[in-house]
Simulated assay, not measured.
Amino acid sequence: MTNTTTAKHRARAAALALGVAMAASSASTSAAAQTIPAQESRTMTTQSTAPAADTLSAQQQAILPIAAFAAAGDIAKLNAALNQGLDAGLTISDAREVLVQLYAYAGFPRSLNALTELMKVLDARKQRGIQDAPGREPSHAIPQGDALRAAGTANQTKLVGQPVAGPIFEFAPAIGEYLQAHLFGAIFERDNLDWQSRELATVAMLSALPGAEGQLQGHVGYSMNTGLTAKQMQQAVQVLSERVGADSGRRASEALAKVLAARAR
């Protein structure tokens, strides 16, 4: 496959992940900027640069049902998933970060409802004598204003593997600003949850939302850009199928198949 064809395929995947079906990246994007360096791809986390294993940790697995049930608004199942996740070693901060991030994919109402449920779960566990580890706060102050958008743009480019552009961002420039400032800036600058965990959470959220298959496919690819392996993503699909439901697992499986097929060309 030629460099031009490869660039078009990756631009299309990036656009799909941001809700721009079949949009191509801007013609001015250089070919060198459109392929994430292999070594950088293997080490792109905010907490660890160790080579990825072939299995997800218990904490990573626990994030998947929490994120999926929160996105679906299934509070009863979210309650159980939160308890299981905390028992598996997630800190309060880990769970809270996932549920804050939810607002970018499923909206503020479900994020607020999920955070309220986490508070109830923690209170009930405390009454039973369980002291959950608090976790940690971000290691640095989050930038503001223009500096925040610049940081978000850099994070977005690193995660996607190329600068993101397309007709939708010319038609509605505000959506690009919100993505860069809020999602990839204000959220992804919070390094108390690593990028692999954030992307696993995103994959789980999108797998629970019918009609978000394009974005799901994009974020499966971004998950692998953080260093998660094909075997780990296959395990994520299995966890979603077994612990969330057949529909969620099917959507994630189809997205992974498309990503792996594209990368094999």
Rank of each mutant, 00 (worst) to 15 (best):
Phe171Glu: 10
Ala124Asp: 15
Ala106Cys: 09
Glu117Met: 05
Gly73Tyr: 07
Ala114Leu: 12
Ala124Glu: 15
Pro163Ser: 11
Leu82Phe: 12
Val98Ala: 09
Asp94Met: 12
Leu78His: 08
Gln144Ala: 14
Gly166Ser: 05
Leu122Gly: 01
Leu90Val: 15
Val98Lys: 11
Lys120Pro: 01
Lys126Glu: 06
Ser111Lys: 09
Ala71Ile: 13
Thr116Ile: 10
Pro138Leu: 07
Gly152Met: 13
Arg125Met: 04
Ala150Cys: 02
Val121Lys: 01
Gly152Glu: 11
Gly107Phe: 12
Gln127Glu: 09
Asp74Ala: 02
Asp132Gln: 08
Lys77Cys: 10
Arg96Phe: 11
Asn113Asp: 12
Pro134Tyr: 06
Glu137His: 12
Leu82Glu: 05
Ala95Ser: 11
Ala172Lys: 00
Phe169Asp: 00
Ala67Pro: 00
Leu86Ser: 02
Glu170Gly: 01
Ala141Leu: 15
Ala141Asn: 14
Val164Pro: 01
Asp94Tyr: 11
Gln84Asn: 14
Ala95Lys: 00
Leu90Ile: 07
Gly129Pro: 10
Asp94Glu: 12
Val98Arg: 06
Gly161Gln: 05
Asp123Glu: 15
Gly107Trp: 08
Val164Arg: 03
Lys158Gln: 15
Asp146Trp: 03
Ile75Leu: 03
Gly166Thr: 07
Lys77Phe: 04
Phe69Trp: 06
Gly73Pro: 05
Thr153Glu: 05
Arg128Ser: 13
Ala67Gln: 02
Ala70Asn: 07
Val160Trp: 14
Ala150Gly: 04
Ala72Gln: 14
Ile130Leu: 11
Ile75Pro: 01
Arg149Phe: 14
Ile66Thr: 03
Ser93Cys: 02
Pro173Gly: 11
Leu99Met: 02
Ala104Gly: 00
Ile142Ala: 03
Leu86Cys: 04
Ala133Pro: 05
Tyr105Trp: 03
Ala154Asn: 02
Ile130Tyr: 09
Leu122His: 04
Ala150Tyr: 04
Leu148Trp: 14
Leu102Pro: 10
Ala124Lys: 15
Gln84Thr: 14
Leu82Gln: 15
Gln162Arg: 15
Thr153Met: 08
Thr91His: 03
Leu159Glu: 01
Tyr105Val: 03
Leu99Pro: 06
Val160His: 12
Pro65Tyr: 15
Ala151Cys: 03
Met119Val: 08
Lys120Tyr: 13
Arg149Glu: 08
Asn113Ala: 15
Ile142His: 02
Leu82Cys: 14
Ala172Leu: 08
Gln127Thr: 10
Glu170Leu: 07
Asp132Glu: 10
Leu99Arg: 06
Tyr103Trp: 06
Gly152Gln: 13
Gly89Asn: 04
